[in-house]
């Protein structure tokens, strides 16, 4: 069966619609005029204004710090969870474990955010910790949200490789822990990296959970963008969006080149 022209046209149209808003947004970000649709010359003024917007810059740095820490926690815990699900076939409470792990994956952000806020409030009342909400509570919430994603990536990677290689290592004189370090961990490494990147992105992108679990003085970038958007889009946001998109495209391209360079 040859490829149908209908499908090809549909795909091209779909991708065009997917990219048209982004293309317009990038174009607009270089427009000197404040008015979206009136082109009055190429300008980088909105980029300059963005870097001079201290509130925005503070929020961006806070978001990056939160994403770095929560992605790292999520990768550590999610890596263990993925390994457990793929390699420890039977352990006590496996069903409950898998259910708790998957819950943040399948529930809307709103429920996760609300539930965690209630937890932080209750914990503060009972133990005095965490004192007020802020970056720390957002980190805890984001890590919780991302563990399942990392676990999923790691589990599917390990499930696809099977246990034969570890058996070979043990056959060649490696005790289980050495086999884990020399064989399992290197096999998991690409999945851990992919999981970390996914967690980092999810944390950077989240507005709902952060809105619930953050407190005064800790406004993340998405929270700031959200509250700005409620009042209407600004040219600075166009510049920000274009910049983030460029960074994402660069990262994706780098990952692709890296994947091509070391093929096994």
């Amino acid at each position: 069966m040859t490829r149908s022209p209908f499908l090809t046209c549909w795909l091209i149209a779909g991708l065009t619609v997917l990219y048209l808003p982004i293309a317009l947004l990038i174009g607009t970000s270089f427009n000197a005029s404040r008015l979206t649709t009136q082109w009055s010359g190429f300008s980088l003024r909105w980029y300059v204004a963005m870097f001079h917007d201290t509130a925005l810059m503070d929020a961006a740095f806070l978001s990056i710090r939160i994403a770095l820490v929560s992605a790292t926690i999520a990768t550590l815990l999610g890596g263990i969870a993925g390994f457990a699900l793929a390699r420890l076939r039977r352990f006590h409470g496996r069903t409950l474990f898998a259910g708790l792990l998957a819950a943040p994956l399948v529930l809307p952000d709103l429920l996760i955010g609300l539930a965690l806020l209630l937890l932080f409030v209750a914990a503060e009342r009972l133990t005095g910790f965490p004192q007020n909400r802020g970056a720390l509570t957002v980190v805890l919430a984001h890590a919780t949200m991302c563990i399942a994603y990392v676990a999923l990536v790691v589990e599917s990677r390990l499930a696809s490789t099977g246990t034969t290689l570890e058996q070979v290592a043990m056959d060649l004189g490696a005790p289980p822990f050495t086999a884990f370090l020399r064989i399992t961990l290197p096999l998991m490494a690409p999945a851990l990296l992919a999981g970390w990147l996914l967690a980092f992105t999810l944390s950077l992108d989240d507005v709902v959970i952060a809105s619930f679990t953050s407190g005064p003085g800790a406004t993340t970038l998405p929270m700031l963008v959200f509250s700005t958007l409620r009042l209407g889009a600004t040219p600075i946001l166009n510049a920000l969006a274009s910049l983030v998109l460029a960074l994402a495209a660069g990262a994706l391209f780098a990952a692709w080149r890296l994947g091509r360079a070391r093929k096994y």
Binding site: L165, Q167, D171, P175
Partner: peptide
């Protein structure tokens, strides 16, 4: 004796060479 302490080695079906 566990496999890592046996003076026995196996050549696995499909070789199972370490890809990394």
């Amino acid at each position: 004796l566990p496999s890592w302490q046996r003076p026995v080695n196996t050549m696995f079906q499909n070789y199972a060479l370490f890809p990394h």
